[in-house]
């Protein structure tokens, strides 16, 4: 066998291995249901499809390796992608591809927590509250007109206003997984009308500077495409027993909504009536509801 052929054989084999490795890593993540720890559900299909593409490329590289092994030339034209000749360069380049595979397969999957929330910057208030709203009538069931007057909408907040009317009529507002961010936004936007309401919300415990001993945030990471764009959001809560719950522990909290000043900003706070530790959720992230506007 010629040296050039042997070199090509090694390159093709290495490439086949790496391509198959990436494909297998994706399959591994899908099998363990851990792929959504990295990317949003709406991206999963594309990543799965690319696993097929990677497999196909790996098979092709294997075929090319066989061709090179038998001294024949594969169908390629090698016009511009000759691999570098230096051994060290090759080790580094292939090492670069092996690095994500190694840490991907060997390190356990985890989720983002308090330390990352602090780095990314925690947000308590997504929407600025409307200041001028009609005062709520005190007695009797509300008519449709009264509701509309309570929740005025502009062109772009119409869906939030509609949602607010629905929430307003509930005795107890359970913040749903599917519309986590929309629910928090609505509560923020029509803040005056929701004060005094009972809210139930789940998330992990997050603390930062400026909080009192009783305070903590019930928080979630909101992901759009992948964890790199995940941002921590949450609601301030206050409970006398707060110190018993450590950072990053998952809790469900029921409480009454009040308004407090935190870092010179008025934000919502839950005065906790009941609090319990729950198992970390299988789906720790929440996602914006893309059908919310429809």
């Amino acid at each position: 066998m010629l040296t050039a052929d042997r070199r090509r054989l090694v390159h093709h084999l290495l490439r086949a291995g790496i391509l198959a490795g990436f494909a297998m890593y994706i399959v591994h993540l899908v099998r363990n249901d851990s792929i959504t720890l990295y990317i949003a559900p709406r991206m999963v299909l594309y990543v799965k499809l690319s696993a097929i593409g990677l497999y196909a490329a790996a098979v092709y590289q294997l075929y090319a390796a066989l061709q090179a092994g038998t001294g024949r030339k594969a169908a390629d034209c090698d016009c511009d992608h000759e691999p570098p000749a230096s051994l060290w360069k090759n080790i580094i380049i292939y090492g670069l591809f092996l690095f994500p595979l190694t840490i991907g397969f060997l390190l356990p999957d985890g989720t983002l927590g308090s330390s990352m929330a602090a780095k990314k910057g925690f947000t308590f208030s997504i929407e600025s509250s409307l200041t001028e709203t009609a005062p709520a009538p005190t007695t009797g069931p509300l008519t449709e007109q009264q509701l509309n007057a309570l929740f005025p909408a502009e062109e772009f907040t119409e869906s939030l206003a509609e949602y607010a009317k629905k929430l307003y009529l509930q005795d107890e507002i359970i913040v749903p997984e599917k519309q986590y961010i929309e629910t928090l936004s609505t509560l923020e936007l029509y803040r005056p009308h929701f004060i005094g309401k009972t809210i139930v919300i789940s998330g992990f415990v997050y603390r930062q500077e400026g909080m009192t001993r009783d305070q903590f945030a019930v928080s979630r990471f909101v992901m759009n495409c992948c964890s790199a764009d995940a941002m921590p959001y949450g609601m301030m809560a206050s409970a006398p027993s707060a110190a018993a719950y450590s950072n990053d522990s998952w809790v469900t909290v029921r409480g009454t909504l009040t308004e407090i000043s935190y870092n010179n900003q008025m934000i919502l706070q839950l005065d906790v009536k009941h609090m319990e530790v729950i198992d970390a959720l299988d789906a720790p992230y929440v996602y914006p509801d893309y059908n919310f506007d429809l």
Partner: peptide, 16 residues
């Protein structure tokens, strides 16, 4: 752990 999550997620997102 955070680094791993971010690194892998950027890659997975870009691969397709």
């Amino acid at each position: 752990q955070s680094f791993k999550i971010l690194f892998i997620s950027i890659l997975l997102e870009a691969i397709p």
